[in-house]
């Protein structure tokens, strides 16, 4: 066992696959000598060279489009967008091309590509550099969506993402990049669609992913002091989604709080809530509670940003409201 940051987990996952397979390469804005805006690819340029860790112009459309084209021609590209917010610029290439080519071509082509999408608030980066847009991509058939919460998962999910023959949206959280956590000496690929039970409990289930897994764990600690037992589930992948683990937990706790950092309106938490309502309704002893950011752009001033984004106190309040 060793300690690794979330960013190092992502880097190791990419590097391991790049050492194994010459068809895997990383490209995007400032990923080369600069090491990426958040230092995720630091050192990779020196190890793999400029053709395999390649700086692009600031052109998000062609970054995603070239990932599509090169994947269609047999490579396994990893495309980094500097911020998930910039996905808007390349959205056609993702939604109308990457997600649809295989289907529209009758399954006769495969697109093994990973798009890395750093998101989330908490850094006073304001509304164009702080969004959580995972619901946008999870909505689109043809894409898989991954959102690790810790270094080990980032590493293991990256191994799987690069091996996958479909476009994988690898959501990363900027605040988590520097957070250290335990990583096994030998990291194995983590299958998509397998949630992790981060803490077992009996009173209320808290379902989350990404940074909110850490908030959920904090909330569970606070609540345990009041004798409230919370089960914390990290879904790890939004699609495919491990419904079974959520439903199984509900059959024990009968109460659920679902947490993400997205603006709450239209958030992916709503999809989880609706699945529970449709397929697991009779297990519920109380209404489903959802926590998200307030329905505003993410503001710049720290006090405003803290007010708009959810935190562990919101989870504590929601859990208590169910008991």
């Amino acid at each position: 066992m060793r300690k690794m940051t979330y960013a190092e987990g992502i880097r190791e996952g990419m590097s391991v696959k790049m050492r194994e397979n010459p068809d895997v390469f990383l490209f995007g804005e400032d990923v080369g000598k600069f090491g990426g805006c958040f230092g995720v690819s630091a050192g990779m340029f020196d190890e793999f060279g400029e053709m395999r860790v390649r700086d692009t112009p600031i052109s998000e459309g062609v970054i995603i489009g070239a990932a599509v084209g090169s994947a269609a021609c047999g490579l396994r590209p990893i495309a980094e967008l500097m911020f998930v917010d910039f996905l808007t610029v390349g959205m056609d290439q993702l939604v109308n091309q990457a997600a649809k080519m295989r289907y529209m071509f009758g399954g006769k082509i495969k697109l093994p590509m990973v798009v890395r999408l750093p998101g989330g608030g908490g850094a006073s980066a304001a509304a164009q550099h702080s969004q959580s847009l995972e619901a946008w991509v999870a909505h689109v058939p043809g894409l898989k969506v991954v959102y690790p919460s810790n270094a080990q998962d980032a590493y293991g999910l990256m191994l799987t993402a690069i091996e996958d023959d479909n476009p994988v949206m690898f959501m990363e959280n900027k605040i988590l990049y520097s957070v250290k956590s335990d990583v096994e000496d030998e990291v194995k690929p983590i299958s998509f669609g397998k949630a992790a039970i981060k803490k077992e409990g009996t009173d209320v289930t808290v379902v989350s992913y990404g940074r909110q897994v850490l908030d959920s764990m904090k909330a569970a600690d606070i609540l345990s002091k009041d004798g409230i037992s919370v089960e914390v589930i990290d879904i790890r992948t939004l699609f495919p989604l491990d419904k079974e683990t959520i439903f199984k937990s509900l059959s024990k706790t009968h109460k659920v709080v679902i947490v993400s950092e997205e603006a709450k309106r239209g958030a992916f938490t709503g999809e989880i809530a609706s699945l529970i309502a449709e397929e697991c309704f009779f297990e519920l002893d109380a209404p489903v509670r959802r926590i998200g950011a307030l329905n505003t752009p993410v503001p710049f001033a720290t006090n405003l940003e803290n007010y708009v984004l959810p935190n562990e106190q919101d989870i504590v309040i929601a859990v208590k409201s169910l008991l």
Binding site: F25, M51, G61, V62, I64, G65, A66, A67, V68, G69, S70, A71, A72, C73, G74, L75, P77, D92, Q93, N96, Q97, M101, M104, F105, I109
Partner: peptide
């Protein structure tokens, strides 16, 4: 690599093919 219903979408895909060839 496909006909395409989005006007201009092929430009970037072609560049991706060119990238794969060069690589």
């Amino acid at each position: 690599l496909g006909a395409n219903g989005i006007v201009g979408a092929g430009h970037n895909i072609a560049v991706g093919a060119g990238l794969a060839i060069q690589y």
